[in-house]
Design a protein around this nucleic acid. Structure first.
Lengths: 111, 111
DNA sequence: ATTTAATGTTAGAAAAGCTGACATTTATTT
DNA sequence: AAATAAATGTCAGCTTTTCTAACATTAAAT
């Protein structure tokens, strides 16, 4: 994972900040968690710690709900997103590997 | 200010998170605030809310202290940094303005 | 040998967060 | 229309976090 992705996944925000950033209520945020739309980490004492990615996702969820999608719908939408992201990641890894082989070949002939 | 700078100045982190990110104690963080090395915002109930810039600055402070600088020293170092940043900002604004004028001239002749 | 700077520690109070339950509202289904 | 379900509101009791202020300790500067 890139440095940037790592940073965006750091669990650093308490629910109060997330409430302000998203304009959702605590109740909504927790309800979406119950329904597996997000999975914030927990701090030492058991309090939720959200990442910037969690915030992004909550804003997305908000948009979907406003657009009339149900939570079930959103579960599937997010699952699909997840699959696509994985595919993309895999194909990029594969590309990197094959490029690496090619360069290795070139390197061998080059000297 | 750029979008990025704005984001880095958002007051979003409670002291607990900052403690974990910097490996400083609450006591140290508050003491540095007392000595005007940082000025975190306050949330509704009066609790400190730190920005990512605050965190950066705390890490810097830590390095200076490890290097043997006193808090007084660091106050001056940071003040100097601040002045340099302002100068830089000013000169860049001036540059932008003069470039704008030049382009305006060109534009006038151009048609 | 004092003073001063930086940090530790503690107490008591306030704020924020947690879970679980019941209530309300709005949309679906029968 | 009545019943059910989905999403959110609200409240109570409890735990965790943060706050300030004060006094304590340690190490460095005078």
């Amino acid at each position: 994972m890139s440095e940037r992705e790592l940073r965006r996944n750091l669990a650093i925000l308490p629910i109060g900040t997330v409430r302000e950033l998203t304009l959702l209520t605590d109740r909504q945020i927790r309800y979406y968690e119950q329904n597996n739309l997000i999975s914030p980490n927990r701090g030492k004492g058991g309090q939720r710690r959200f990442s910037l990615n969690d915030v992004d996702r909550l804003l997305e969820i908000k948009d979907f709900l406003d657009a009339g999608d149900s939570i079930r719908d959103i579960q599937e939408i997010l699952a699909k997103q997840q699959r696509k992201a994985l595919e993309k990641h895999d194909s990029e890894s594969a590309l990197r590997r094959s490029l690496q082989k090619e360069f290795a070949q070139i390197g061998r002939f080059g000297r």
